[in-house]
Design a protein around this nucleic acid. Structure first.
Lengths: 201, 201
DNA sequence: TCCAAAAACATAACCGTTAGTGTTACGATC
DNA sequence: GATCGTAACACTAACGGTTATGTTTTTGGA
């Protein structure tokens, strides 16, 4: 009843993990492009079709923990203290995410990704999906209603902040600056009913 | 001296055009994924290798005129009137680009792109490159020096504006709103020397 | 115990892309 | 105008990611 995880799901998870671990190890050892899907499958002792039943593409083998990213972001919106303003909450969360991925322990994987165009491209297209769900989370917050365009725009800007800060020489400083810009942008985003220009009576 | 285009270059351009035209026609007729590279090559009466010597990838067959996009953007920066502020110039240019691609004549191609994940992904990764060269153009302007981070950030925001406005139900209105946000963001971006916070004397 | 669903499997193919290896047509040079 | 280097093109064959097809094994529950 509680969490009756049966043998079946446990085995499935184990297989998935074994594939991911094996793949990452091989990629780090020999380089991403130098390792074929068939190599990974053989080393993990599974069939190629099994591998693809767990992972949608070769690139996905590297981004195992990536729904985490999405969850962290949306939770920063939906789970923040009542009346806490949106942008600072996102700032904190993105800061934590950037620090997490610029940490020394994550360096080998980062180098792996940066070294392969295919992986970089894949990552960017993931970010777009993340931006969409972030926009949805913002849209779902009754406290702040600024209109669809404003929500989606801010969501994109936040994702940009993550990706730009990561590449900067001083990620923390860059992130501060970008979020100052985002704060200003959010401040002037208009509410749905406000269809007038900038003029007042 | 002037533009001595020889037969060779003319033939090359003709081959390229024939391939692109054939590809687009087939894609529109049967759908992008339903047409293989070998189909295009056969119909254009060239070898597969020839096709790939003109186009880096299958997706590139659809985005023939895409350096235009990049050129328009950078020219909007480098070629604007002296002392004309940056953001409005970019606004005008992006507006023109959005209108161009939401025009009725471009609709079939847009549907083609939106209908294929591969094409959407390819387009987005192009946009990233465009953002980089836009950032470079901004960085190259002696009139405005706000620092690398600010430049790259604004460049990304502008690209976002294009991509978000295109998908909006009212592209013009959405673009106006987004550029109001960008204007605000640009206004608070700090100059390279300015390492202080928000405080004044 | 037996059944239906789920998971893993094996094989073979499809498709984009590239390497290797010529062959032709052009433009420049003498 | 004959020669020569080279850019463009062609053909074959392969490589690597991905998918279709159909089969066998494992598992949870009736």
């Amino acid at each position: 009843m509680t969490v009756p995880i049966g043998r079946r799901e446990r085995k499935k998870a184990a297989t998935r993990k074994k594939i991911a671990d094996t793949a990452l190890r091989l990629f780090l050892e020999r380089g991403y492009e130098a390792v074929g899907i068939r190599d990974v499958a053989a080393e993990a002792d599974v069939a190629v079709t099994t591998l693809f039943s767990h992972f949608a593409a070769k690139e996905a083998l590297v981004f195992e923990r990536d729904d985490d990213f999405e969850r962290c972001l949306t939770r920063a919106v939906t789970g923040r203290a009542p009346h806490e303003p949106l942008v600072p909450a996102l700032h904190r969360e993105v800061q934590s995410l950037v620090r997490h991925c610029t940490a020394d322990s994550a360096l080998p994987v980062r180098r792996l990704i940066d070294g392969s165009p295919a992986l970089r491209e894949y990552e960017e297209s993931m970010r777009l999906r993340h931006a969409e769900s972030l926009a949805a989370a913002i849209a779902g917050d009754p406290g702040l209603s600024k209109g669809t365009t404003a929500n989606r725009t801010i969501a994109r800007f936040v994702i940009d902040a993550y990706s730009l800060a990561r590449e900067a020489s001083d990620p923390d400083a860059a992130l501060d600056e970008i979020f100052r810009m985002i704060e200003a942008a959010w401040a002037v985003a208009r509410t749905p009913a406000d269809t007038t220009g900038t003029a007042g009576p």
